[in-house]
Amino acid sequence: MEAQPPVIRAFGAAAIAEAAVLIRAGGIVAVPTETVYGLAADARDAQAVARIYAAKGRPSFNPLIVHVADLAAAEAIAVFDADAHALAARFWPGPLTLVLPLRDRAGIASLVTAGLDTIAIRVPAHRAIQALIAAADAPLAAPSANASNGLSPTRAEHVAASLGARAPLIIDDGATEAGVESTIVAGRTILRPGPITADMLGRVLPVAPGTTAHVSAPGQLATHYAPAKPLRLNARDREADEWLIGFGDVTGDDTLSSRGDLVEAAAALFDALHRADASAAARIAVAPVPDDGVGVAINDRLRRAAHR
């Protein structure tokens, strides 16, 4: 017997109420944020969080981001210093995740932090996940709503295609705005580039890109964000068996931005990769993208996607 397809509900009060019932019962729900669609569960419920890992096939050592309603809710879970307060004041609600010390007796399931003494936390700006946080009255662990190492979803149909019945309910509120996952900062180190760029952060605090010896935040696995097909980067011409994703003056079967607009490219990135993966071509090629501003995040995702 074939598994039932996921239920997709248009965003609204009824859909959020239905989703909140599932969350409170220990279930999982796919919900849009301003970055990508997330697969959400109550971050205090270890079994619910385990359902996220099971649905995604996610490695147990890769932590999850916890989404909360506001700064006060974040401070009940994590220990903030002056730097964290400064970043939160400037960029929350929004696509910035802070990696901070986990507060004693915070009530967060250890599976969320992968056993670490830090937690990745953010206050999202999107109306759908904020409505679900309020209706469920819970902090939500919500990694991207796709199979692990697959393409991150920017539309409800991407979630359905990647997870199928493993995402029993999907809240559909259209395409996400940013198109790439949140920027992650630990202290004054950028662990993952994203919509909040280094230049934007630098206007608040001196920050620098960095790496860690262990996985302390989502998106640090080398093979994250990979399509099924081989991917060639910095391509200016299409080879015979390739689907070429263009940028700027490099035209192809698709384009991230014919105008060379990096923000437009970021929003289009995963849509374009999904289309390429679904095409008849055996391989994917992507045109060069400038490595500045949000282009750093785009290239980060593409390098991970090309790593095999």
Score class of each variant (00 low, 15 high):
P6G: 04
A86G: 01
G38A: 14
P32S: 10
L151A: 08
D261Q: 05
R203F: 00
R236S: 11
A272P: 04
I23V: 15
A272C: 15
A134L: 14
V31W: 00
L169M: 10
E181S: 10
A167M: 10
P195E: 08
L140R: 11
A240Q: 12
D261P: 03
R304A: 04
A142P: 10
A186H: 13
P143D: 10
E157A: 15
P63V: 01
A213R: 14
I298Y: 08
A175D: 05
G252S: 06
G179V: 08
E242N: 04
A265P: 09
P230R: 04
L151M: 10
M200F: 05
D70Y: 02
A145M: 07
A30Q: 08
A89W: 02
A282H: 05
A43E: 09
I196S: 05
P101G: 11
Q130I: 11
S162N: 07
R166L: 15
G252F: 09
A138T: 05
D199Y: 05
L151H: 08
I196P: 12
L269C: 09
V123G: 06
V185Y: 14
A40D: 00
L39A: 12
A72L: 05
A305K: 07
V204P: 05
H126L: 02
S216H: 13
T33H: 06
G295D: 00
L87I: 00
L100T: 07
L256E: 05
I119M: 07
G174V: 13
V250R: 04
L231R: 15
T154E: 07
A297P: 09
I245E: 12
G164P: 09
H274F: 15
A228K: 11
Y225F: 07
G57P: 00
G210C: 03
M1A: 15
A3S: 13
L205T: 02
G107Q: 13
R24N: 14
D199V: 12
G179F: 12
V79K: 02
D253L: 12
S257A: 13
P124C: 13
H126K: 01
